[in-house]
Amino acid sequence: MNQPLAYVHPGAKIAKNVVIEPFTTIHNNVTIGEGTWIGSNVTIMEGARIGKNCNIFPGAVISATPQDLKYKGEETTVHIGNNTTIRECATINKGTSDRMKTVIGKNCLIMAYCHVAHDCFIGDGCIFSNNSTLAGHVTIGNNVVLAGMVAVHQFVSIGNHAFVTGGSLVRKDVPPFVKAAREPLSYVGINSIGLRRRGFEAGKIREVQNIYRILYQRNYNNSQAASIIEAEMEATPERDEILQFIRDSQRGIMKGYFSSN
């Protein structure tokens, strides 16, 4: 780590084999785990908790003050899981008094110019493509892919294994296992390619498809569809996860797509 052209505050806790490139600034009250690489011109501010074997590319700013006028200087944090890569000029803000922290899970890829605002909770294995932006208080599950230039409204939830197409405006909650596209954002099928890549068998993928046919293609409201799914579909972890997501949704789930004649 011995890099004389980087500034590391004496109060920062840096593992011995962390590499810090020139012109990077690391503030007080920062922890960085073993094997992590910090590129040039990175700024890591107070409250950052960075895991092992992460890669943070030039221009990134980690744990800056929230862009929230309600923030009053409370001591909050950012947590970044092991093996996560943060590309050039991405910005990740620390939490506010709502959740007290912003969390990015393990094995994530946050591409260039992405923004993750205060109090976001992001699961493991997520990929956010260039310029994707999360407002505050967003919750994202595991293995979620946001294509380029996706904008996510505050307090939105996105379920496990969902895929959101590029340029989308996400104003409503996106259930697990689905593909979301069009404007306004709508259900356009399940994320079958992503599910196959992650080892879901064909029978399990058909099960998920059948659940979403009831929810989105039979003209039921969400409450009716949930009751029918629970009554007619065999109880499985995937069925129960979808039902729980629908019932827990605070902003309401996105609609199905219907073409107008």
Score class of each variant (00 low, 15 high):
residue 75 E to C: 02
residue 77 T to N: 12
residue 77 T to E: 14
residue 79 H to A: 00
residue 45 M to W: 09
residue 41 N to F: 14
residue 44 I to W: 02
residue 55 N to E: 12
residue 55 N to G: 03
residue 50 I to C: 08
residue 45 M to C: 10
residue 79 H to Y: 05
residue 43 T to G: 00
residue 75 E to I: 14
residue 62 I to R: 10
residue 60 A to I: 08
residue 65 T to A: 11
residue 52 K to E: 15
residue 53 N to C: 09
residue 68 D to M: 04
residue 60 A to T: 12
residue 57 F to M: 11
residue 60 A to W: 13
residue 64 A to E: 15
residue 59 G to A: 06
residue 67 Q to D: 10
residue 38 I to P: 02
residue 76 T to S: 13
residue 79 H to S: 06
residue 42 V to C: 08
residue 67 Q to V: 07
residue 65 T to K: 13
residue 75 E to Y: 12
residue 65 T to G: 01
residue 53 N to T: 09
residue 54 C to N: 09
residue 72 K to L: 15
residue 38 I to R: 04
residue 57 F to V: 00
residue 57 F to N: 02
residue 43 T to Y: 12
residue 59 G to E: 03
residue 75 E to Q: 15
residue 79 H to G: 00
residue 52 K to I: 01
residue 44 I to E: 03
residue 69 L to V: 15
residue 50 I to R: 11
residue 76 T to V: 07
residue 51 G to K: 02
residue 62 I to Y: 11
residue 70 K to G: 11
residue 62 I to C: 07
residue 59 G to T: 06
residue 51 G to H: 04
residue 60 A to L: 11
residue 67 Q to C: 05
residue 59 G to Q: 08
residue 69 L to M: 15
residue 61 V to L: 09
residue 64 A to P: 00
residue 45 M to S: 10
residue 61 V to C: 10
residue 42 V to R: 06
residue 75 E to H: 13
residue 62 I to E: 08
residue 68 D to V: 05
residue 51 G to Y: 02
residue 78 V to T: 15
residue 48 A to P: 01
residue 65 T to W: 06
residue 58 P to I: 04
residue 58 P to A: 06
residue 47 G to N: 06
residue 59 G to N: 07
residue 74 E to K: 14
residue 61 V to I: 15
residue 76 T to D: 05
residue 56 I to W: 06
residue 71 Y to C: 05
residue 52 K to F: 03
residue 52 K to Q: 14
residue 56 I to T: 02
residue 72 K to M: 14
residue 43 T to A: 12
residue 54 C to Y: 05
residue 46 E to Y: 07
residue 67 Q to L: 12
residue 43 T to Q: 10
residue 69 L to R: 14
residue 46 E to Q: 15
residue 56 I to Q: 01
residue 63 S to D: 08
residue 53 N to G: 07
residue 55 N to S: 13
residue 51 G to A: 11
residue 71 Y to P: 03
residue 63 S to H: 07
residue 64 A to N: 09
residue 79 H to W: 00
residue 66 P to K: 04
residue 66 P to Q: 07
residue 57 F to C: 01
residue 50 I to E: 06
residue 73 G to K: 12
residue 67 Q to Y: 10
residue 70 K to S: 14
residue 62 I to D: 05
residue 70 K to E: 11
residue 50 I to D: 06
residue 46 E to H: 13
residue 38 I to V: 13
residue 62 I to F: 10
residue 45 M to K: 08
residue 40 S to D: 04
residue 65 T to R: 12
residue 66 P to A: 06
residue 45 M to P: 00
residue 71 Y to W: 15
residue 51 G to L: 07
residue 53 N to V: 07
residue 73 G to R: 13
residue 79 H to M: 00
residue 67 Q to T: 09
residue 73 G to L: 11
residue 57 F to L: 12
residue 53 N to E: 15
residue 42 V to I: 10
residue 74 E to N: 12
residue 74 E to T: 13
residue 63 S to Q: 05
residue 73 G to P: 12
residue 41 N to K: 10
residue 70 K to R: 12
residue 56 I to V: 09
residue 72 K to I: 07
residue 76 T to M: 07
residue 74 E to P: 10
residue 74 E to R: 14
residue 41 N to S: 11
residue 60 A to M: 11
residue 59 G to Y: 08
residue 79 H to P: 00
residue 76 T to P: 02
residue 56 I to E: 00
residue 49 R to I: 01
residue 78 V to A: 04
residue 67 Q to W: 11
residue 77 T to I: 02
residue 49 R to V: 01
residue 75 E to F: 13
residue 73 G to M: 11
residue 68 D to K: 03
residue 71 Y to G: 03
residue 76 T to E: 08
residue 47 G to W: 02
residue 51 G to S: 11
